[in-house]
Computed example of a mutant assay.
Amino acid sequence: MSETSPRNPRRQEFTGVERAIDAWAAERLRRRGRSRWRRVVLELLVFGAKQAWACVFGALMLVGIVAARLWWPDDAAVARNDALTVYAVLIQVVMLATRLETARELWVIMLFHVAGTGMELFKTDVGSWSYEAEGVLRLGAVPLFTGFMYASVGSYMVRTMRMFDLRFSHYPPLAVTIVIGALIYANFFAHHYVFDFRWLLLGAVVIAWGRCMMHFRVHRRRFRMPVLVAFALVAVFIWFAENIATSAGAWAYPDQVDGWTMVSPQKIVSWFLLMIISVVLVTFVHRPRSPDQDEEVGS
């Protein structure tokens, strides 16, 4: 569903590439944008371009993982996982140096890094998944590049929040979201020892965010969709990326040790719940704003 939208008050925060996408779209509209179908097609093209740009960190990480599996020699002086860690650091440095990410966004990305690495240390210890035992840039059984995979999710989310000028109606109280996010994170650890509360937590998410609508600007128009649908779509997308990464040998689940098999679709639920943790972390930098709110809250 779409609705008309005023000029984006936060456009000054866009990077050069993001401004170039909007400038290209504005020029196309000026020249040929009179018909309705052309405007629709243009909005779709801009949406795709901005989504691809928001995914650049994660896409580069995935390309690096696949390339390392295909072309990095097994007997190289530098282990494959160490090379991936250096590669991930270089991506982050370049994105900061070229201002593709702001220092304000970096600290929430680092929260993703820390939270993800903590989970990795625990999950590898209990045998949920495993990595190749190679390299020196690691903590225990966890190569350091893995933290950057979680950071790439954080990068995507903060960039999407900014580029699409996300607004929310009926957003649940922040205190409620923080409690639910903390319980979800705790359950990723605790379910190995006590009851798995994921389905109860999923129900809590549906109750808390069930009425919430996400309003987003593509170029000239605003659209809206249920925020739970947005969470589910991102979870499915991450699941597809996970299948590519595990097929490239980045890590392996127990049923993949003797040969790759598709990651269970049940993992989509885990990624959906992880999205809630991600959303809570992002709200520490970009507080949820209502559709009629021009000034950023909590900046």
Rank of each mutant, 00 (worst) to 15 (best):
P291S: 02
A77C: 12
V282E: 10
L60M: 15
D22N: 10
W37F: 13
G127A: 02
G181C: 02
I180W: 08
Y253E: 04
A190N: 13
Q51Y: 15
I238P: 00
M163W: 15
S270I: 05
V263F: 06
G58H: 12
E3I: 13
Q256E: 04
A115P: 09
T261S: 12
P254T: 05
V94Y: 10
V17M: 10
D294E: 15
P73Q: 06
I238M: 08
D255N: 11
G33T: 13
P226C: 02
G259L: 05
W199F: 10
A67M: 08
V229F: 11
F284A: 09
I65E: 11
L166D: 08
V194Y: 15
L144M: 03
G259R: 08
R30M: 09
P291Y: 02
E242P: 01
R217V: 01
M163D: 08
L90N: 09
V78F: 03
V41E: 15
I65Q: 12
A76I: 07
I109G: 00
L84Y: 07
W199V: 15
H113Y: 14
W129Q: 03
G16I: 15
A77Y: 13
A252K: 12
I207R: 05
V280D: 12
F240C: 09
Q51E: 10
K123C: 01
L106C: 01
W37C: 05
C212Y: 04
L84I: 10
R287L: 08
L201W: 09
V56R: 13
L106D: 07
H170M: 10
L202W: 15
A204P: 01
M1T: 13
L42S: 08
V158P: 00
A182G: 01
W53S: 00
V236F: 03
D125I: 01
G64S: 01
F284P: 09
A67S: 08
M213I: 07
